[in-house]
């Protein structure tokens, strides 16, 4: 992206952030269940919190609270939407986080979480969360990548009374290319040219099909394909899906010079298909010295990069 485009993106994101801050607090969906003992039990078990004031009625009655109260740190749990449940009312954060995702800031990491608890919650209280965006800054260059810090505050209400608050800050960042696997992420350089006559083949490969052109009139099979049937002049083209097996008709093992995108040595074969045509492809998944004329193969498919899938051939027994 050019610097100009980058700065206009920054303006767009900043404006969106300011607009959402101006919106102020937006009420969310009320908790599905009121504050209750079974959920407190689960939470204290999971957290290893043995304080009996949260679970033992008799003990709690004798405490300063006079009854069972919920652990304050559990505040988020009461209104957390389940995975399968509808999210309900929109949060003022949705647009901002969505816009960052759309512009490549797909990484997310929580950087700050500060909770303030105004009082203990009692069994039977129903909480409603409300969210307001409070800040956005960036772009900042971080170890993870360039990104924006976005801050919001959630306030939980019991009736009209605010009972707790949480300030939450995340870094939304553009993930750096991972240095450990540059080979896997680099675009495979050796792309086929594709046109109207051959697109069906490459479309098929992406769908896991090895397609062979078949004349729509005389039925002749043909690979490599072409626009006109050499047997009957028909331009009415169809295709069949090959069984995906084949036999090595000839092969080479390439050592030198280096070929962009492929590690040497590697094997390439002319493969005879039972359908009666030949096709060229790499033989993989076995030691190179095992490759020989007559070897039985089956097709598989490999993603070379985000766009290109190639049919590859492996020994049939494997």
């Amino acid at each position: 992206m050019t610097t100009t485009a980058e700065s206009s993106l920054h303006e767009l994101l900043t404006a969106l952030g300011e607009r959402q801050i101006a919106v102020g607090e937006v009420r969310g969906v009320a908790a599905t269940d009121p504050v209750n003992l079974p959920m407190i039990h689960h939470w204290t078990d999971a957290m290893g919190d043995a304080n009996p004031v949260y679970t033992d009625e008799d003990f709690a009655r004798g405490s300063v609270h006079g009854e069972i109260v919920a652990p304050p740190a559990m505040i988020q749990v009461w209104t957390m939407p389940g995975l399968a449940r509808a999210k309900g009312a929109a949060s003022p954060m949705d647009d901002v986080l969505g816009a960052l995702d759309e512009n490549g800031f797909t990484g997310v990491v929580a950087t700050n979480c500060e909770q303030t608890h105004h009082r203990y919650l009692r069994l039977g209280e129903t909480l409603v969360p409300a969210t307001r965006m409070t800040g956005m800054s960036g772009p900042k260059t971080t170890a993870l990548g360039v990104g924006y810090f976005v801050t919001w505050v959630v306030t939980w209400y019991s009736g009209d009374e605010p009972v707790a608050e949480m300030m939450f800050r995340v870094l939304k960042f553009r993930p750096r290319e991972k240095k450990s696997e540059p080979e896997a992420r680099a675009p495979f350089p050796l792309r086929p040219a594709v046109n109207k006559d051959t697109a069906f083949f490459w479309d098929g490969v992406r769908e896991g099909e090895l397609r062979i052109q078949k004349c729509g009139d005389c039925g002749e099979l043909r690979h490599p394909p072409g626009p006109v049937c050499p047997s009957c002049r028909s331009v009415n083209r169809t295709h069949i899906v090959a069984a995906g097996t084949g036999e090595v008709y000839s092969f080479v093992v390439h050592h030198n010079p280096p070929v962009p995108g492929i590690e040497t040595p590697f094997a390439v074969a002319v493969i005879e298909l039972p359908e009666g045509v030949r096709i060229v492809g790499n033989v993989v998944g076995c030691p190179l010295e095992k490759v020989g004329i007559g070897m039985q193969l089956r097709v598989t498919y490999r993603e070379m990069d985000d766009e290109l899938v190639l049919p590859m051939w492996v020994p049939r027994e494997s």
Partner: peptide, 8 residues
């Protein structure tokens, strides 16, 4: 294009 992607 039937050969180059395979390094041939």
């Amino acid at each position: 294009s039937w050969h180059v992607p395979y390094g041939l």
